[in-house]
Nucleic acid binder design. Structure first.
Lengths: 198, 198
DNA sequence: ACTTGCAATTTGACGCTGTCAAGTTATGTG
DNA sequence: CACATAACTTGACAGCGTCAAATTGCAAGT
């Protein structure tokens, strides 16, 4: 028998390894393919090891979503860096939003796809805005007396999130998908021109 | 020659019963709780009976989503009936959109939550627009030379779909949820006033 | 009326899943 | 070095989707 010489992960290393394994599995197998046992196997530990680092599968998903949100924030920031003006910056963030969803669809679905009863378990790890703060700052220059920040943020976020979600679905927005992706995106985001200017 | 739709012999239409059972289970147990075996049990048949009416679990989900889309369309039509003008009609449809998502969150998630590899299996049942046609007609009065129909429809659909999705998530749009639901909805949908008027 | 055919359904099995209980091992501290 | 404790393994259990084979029951053919 080959006793594996693998030395046990110590303090906290396994937690990060399991999260990374989960992200890899999401990328290759989709959201349905994300499994506690597969994460454990990929991290080189037994099927019950994750239980000591996460509160079950929901807890692991919450931790993956939390890490994904930080990647998401970085992607949006990178996409909006070097924008010429405030409007270009806002659209850059939306571009990063869509590109992230397209590049990591399963992770994106996981991040925004929790059911209500799961939220209680993972909300502690998600509620420190992370990504929301980026959007809020990009919206700030366009706040007016008759357009308070929460409303404007909700309009912007709803538009880009809905577009990204429907884009991922593939089954909807068919006529739009006939256009080149870049052109369709820009024309839809042109809605901001009217929403945001006086 | 005429191969009419199969009429089950023992009980009534098992196919319809399974779909209704699925919708009931979605309502009570959520999307995760939707199971082939539970649908079969609730319909009073054995765990393998559904296999003869649907192509596995994905097929059943597709059929449920298909039926859900017709309910969805009816809800939007009902919510927009008797609108004073074109804009009120558009907003009424959006109201119906959100209310449906809030009333049947798990069914709503199922309808829009298929993964890409699942779409091939169920696309045949979903692609006959059903709900999209309602939105398209509501958008038609606002089409302009510089705002072709597919773009406008994508803008409207993205906004209301993103809002409904983020609303269901509960974990996002926190500041907005502090407002009364009706007021928040109306203020967000006020974006249409600017997007749509010349 | 009786047989035959066939579709619907059941039964049973398989491997996979999440989770729990108990046992084992390694680590860090006195 | 001894030992307490956290980390990890092992094993078991019920529930899941799916397949194969056996069974049932209606409908038509003769």
């Amino acid at each position: 028998m080959d006793h594996s010489p693998t030395k046990p992960h110590h303090h906290g290393a396994l937690r990060a390894a399991l999260i990374q394994a989960g992200i890899d599995i999401l990328q290759s197998d989709g959201l349905q393919g994300l499994t506690l046992r597969k994460c454990a196997a990929r991290a080189g530990v037994s099927h019950a090891a994750p239980a000591h680092h996460f509160d079950g599968l929901v807890g692991l998903k919450g931790a993956i979503a939390h890490h994904g949100l930080s990647l998401f924030r970085d992607a949006m920031l990178a996409a909006s860096a070097g924008a010429a003006d405030d409007l270009a910056q806002l659209k850059g963030i939306c571009r990063g939003y869509l590109d992230f969803a397209a590049a990591q669809p399963a992770l994106f679905r996981l991040m925004f796809g929790f059911e209500k009863h799961e939220h209680r378990k993972v909300s502690v790890e998600l509620d420190d805005d992370l990504a929301y703060e980026v959007l809020r700052q990009a919206c700030a220059p366009f706040v007016r007396d008759d357009l308070p920040a929460p409303i404007l943020e909700a309009q912007v976020w709803s538009l880009i999130h809905g577009y990204a979600t429907l884009y991922l679905s593939g089954n909807f927005l068919r006529e739009l998908h006939a256009l080149p992706q870049q052109q369709a995106f820009e024309q839809v985001m042109a809605a901001f021109d009217r929403m945001v200017t006086r």
